[in-house]
Write a protein that binds this DNA or RNA. Structure first.
Length: 571
DNA sequence: GCCGTTTTCGGCCCGACTGTTTTCAGTCG
């Protein structure tokens, strides 16, 4: 079973226990474990089968370890089966509705026999919710709205989508008289690959009408709540946006708090407690007499708990607090470290611009090199190049090279890894290239072993420099193919092949956690945009964000090297 | 259910908003 499957089992257990009114901390243990497992780069199943103890993973103790072993060996969890016998199957789904939690779901079931989304809808339409204790007309309306929204399937949004909406909204809010400062927080500030909502923090002068202006924003579909310090709206695209107004003296504490992650915050507060402090979004206080110690700056919050500043991208409780404590935080890579881009496509296949256009744009961006890497023939939809087309393409690159002084255009190709692990172009043409990226674009549904063998076979070709988008996933659209990344990474290290972090916002592949594992194993990385137009060369930042979330430093990434150093690495 | 260089028991982050109440429980982040 995949990590996701194990995580889903624990989430369902948590949901049922929650509805049953179990100890909330017990419920949280299951939820924490589900999240931890879903976020892990390595396959839990493989770890267990290799006899490794998961009890060392924070949040997984004896009981959960046993359940994981049971799930891995039998594919089932006896405890969950038992719980399912006690609660109708449709109940946990109701928890997904906005505004409905375990207490209300239980009440609805006990009093009205509501055990599914459809029955809840009928009960609400029949006006039977309003007579229940603690519910009224508004609850009824809200439930109906929530069902509608749930069915419309509004979920998470790609980070790049968040960028578009946040930029426009911040521009709009900035013009409100009295607004002194605005900052996005939340998963957006942590540069997570997807965001669930957008959090914006503000400092305002007296009488500032920022909430009025916010809730009247033209793109607002619905005002969810409106208060003096907190308001929420849903935009027409479905994205929820929260604005919070804060005092200057507590702004740093709030920025820290609302940046999260939740797990990071809990760990920080826990640490504060041990030091006799209390950390809230309003500041750092001495526990015994509530005396304010700091809060205006984020740095001071960390300082108060004895830590250096931790960059937002690292705040996931993935070991950053322990690393900070020991002074071992990584010196994260920055966009300015990038010297060139090693994957892009041109009009020769499915790109929109010419080689010369790409080179000019690269110069504008301050790069000293690019690699032109059009598709090989197996990618029919892109009109991929065969050997003959490649000869022509390489000549064209040579011709254009030198026309943009300061930017060296490297000869490259993104060659397909065929089903048997062989490459889509003959070795004598690959030999002519400076950069050969090998990628999988077909037959995604292989079994893990076969896919792992296929990719490793390709890496053994001495002409291959880079493994392109190593997992093939498309965010929110297509799962990664099944592959043992640890084995692939080791093969890449052995063969001197560089692993790509594809910066294209739909891919971000390797993922953050995978990039971290690769780095820790000692692999070399490259961050490339996979641009299909000049404009898309600017997507590099999303790859850098992903690398940062994976604890990656400039020295781990080959396209931070100047041209000569890069050529040496490429051999 | 997890966790521990003050603890193997007794803790476990904390505050805003809503809707229903008339002081608060539930939900959310």
């Amino acid at each position: 079973m995949e990590n996701k499957g194990i995580a889903d089992i624990f989430t369902e257990i948590a949901d049922i226990l929650d509805i049953q009114g179990e100890n909330p901390f017990r419920v949280r243990s299951y939820r924490n474990a589900a999240r931890t497992i879903a976020d892990m780069s390595q396959s839990v199943q493989a770890l267990v089968k290799a006899g490794e103890k998961l009890e060392e993973v924070p949040g997984i103790g004896k009981s959960l370890q046993e359940k994981i072993e049971e799930i891995v060996s039998t594919g089932k969890c006896g405890f969950l089966e038992e719980l399912r016998g006690k609660v109708p199957p449709g109940l946990t789904e109701l928890l997904k509705l906005e505004g409905l939690g375990p207490k209300k779901v239980k009440l609805l079931y006990d009093e009205l026999g509501v055990d599914s989304m459809d029955r809840l809808e009928k009960a609400a339409q029949a006006g039977r919710l309003r007579d229940l204790a603690g519910m009224g007309l508004k609850t009824e309306e809200k439930v109906l709205k929530s069902i509608e929204k749930y069915r419309a399937g509004m979920g998470r949004f790609k980070l790049s989508v968040g960028y578009t909406y946040s930029r426009a909204l911040l521009e709009y809010l900035k013009d409100t008289p009295g607004v002194k400062r605005l900052d996005p927080a939340g998963s957006f500030r942590r540069q997570k690959e997807t965001i669930g909502d957008l959090d914006i923090l503000a400092i305002c002068g007296k009488g500032c009408k920022v909430m009025d202006r916010f809730t009247k924003y033209g793109d607002v579909a619905e005002v969810i709540s409106k208060g003096e310090t907190k308001s929420s709206v849903r935009l027409k695209c479905g994205l929820q946006v929260d604005v919070r107004v804060l005092e200057e003296e507590s702004y740093g504490a709030a920025l820290h708090y609302f940046t999260g992650s939740k797990a990071h915050n809990i760990a920080i507060r826990d640490r504060a407690k041990d030091l006799g402090l209390k950390v809230s979004e309003y500041g750092v206080f001495r526990a015994k007499d509530e005396k304010r110690l700091s809060g205006a700056n984020e740095e001071d919050v960390f300082k108060a708990v004895g830590l250096p500043f931790i960059p937002p991208e690292l705040r996931e409780d993935w070991g950053e607090i322990q690393a900070a404590e020991k002074g071992r935080l990584p010196k994260l890579i920055e966009l300015a470290d990038i010297c060139g881009d090693l994957q892009m496509h041109t009009v020769a296949t499915d790109g929109k611009n010419s080689i010369a256009d790409m080179a000019r744009k690269a110069k504008e961006m301050g790069y000293s090199y690019i690699a032109i890497t059009d598709h090989s023939k197996a990618v029919r939809v892109a009109r991929g190049l065969d050997e003959k087309g490649m000869v022509k393409q390489l000549k064209e690159i040579e011709k254009v090279n030198g026309q943009t002084p300061g930017v060296r255009i490297l000869k490259g190709v993104e060659v397909d890894i065929l089903a048997d692990g062989s490459l889509d172009l003959k070795d004598d043409i690959l030999k002519e290239c400076d950069v050969v990226i090998a990628s999988v674009h077909s037959r995604f549904n292989m079994e893990e072993e076969e896919m792992t063998r296929r990719i490793i076979q390709a890496l053994k070709n001495p002409n291959v420099n880079i493994l392109g988008h190593p997992t093939g996933r498309l965010i929110l659209e297509r799962e990664a193919y099944k592959v043992n990344l640890k084995e692939v990474f080791q093969a890449a290290i052995d063969q001197g092949v560089v692993l790509e972090i594809n910066a294209y916002p739909d891919r971000l592949d390797l993922r953050d956690v995978d990039a971290r594992m690769a780095k820790e194993m000692g692999a070399k990385l490259v961050i490339s945009t996979d641009a299909h137009s000049t404009l898309q060369l600017e997507l590099m930042k999303f790859g850098v964000f992903t690398a940062r979330r994976g604890w990656v430093e400039a020295k781990n990434v080959i396209n931070t090297l100047p041209l000569q150093g890069l050529l040496k690495v490429l051999r």
